[in-house]
Amino acid sequence: MKVIQQDSKVTLHFTIKMKDGSVADSTHNMGKPAQLTIGDGSLSDNFEKHLLGMQSGQEQSIELSAQDAFGMPNPDNIHHMERSKFVGDAEVEVGTIMAFSGPDGAEIPGIITEIAGDSVTVDFNHPLTGHDVTFEVEILSVE
Rank of each mutant, 00 (worst) to 15 (best):
G31C: 06
A99F: 08
T134C: 10
E48W: 02
I97Q: 06
S119N: 11
H13G: 09
A66F: 11
G130Q: 10
L12F: 04
D132V: 07
G117D: 03
N29W: 11
F100N: 07
S119K: 02
I108V: 15
T113E: 09
T113W: 07
N29I: 08
V3T: 15
I4M: 02
K2F: 12
G105K: 10
I115N: 10
P127R: 11
A34F: 11
A90Y: 12
H28W: 12
H50I: 03
P103W: 08
L64D: 09
K85V: 13
T121V: 15
V92E: 03
F135K: 07
G39Y: 07
A90M: 15
L12W: 04
N74C: 02
E59G: 13
A106Q: 14
D76Y: 12
V122G: 03
G57K: 08
I78C: 09
D104R: 13
I97M: 06
Q67I: 06
P33Y: 02
G102R: 03
Q67V: 09
E91I: 12
S42C: 02
I108M: 15
I62Y: 06
H13M: 05
S44L: 10
D132R: 07
Q35L: 00
V92W: 00
E93T: 14
V3R: 15
K49N: 13
A34N: 11
G39E: 02
M81D: 12
T15P: 01
M18T: 11
M1N: 10
F14I: 10
M1A: 07
S26D: 06
G130Y: 08
M30S: 15
N74D: 15
L52V: 03
Q58E: 14
G117N: 10
L12E: 04
A106L: 14
E138Q: 14
E143M: 12
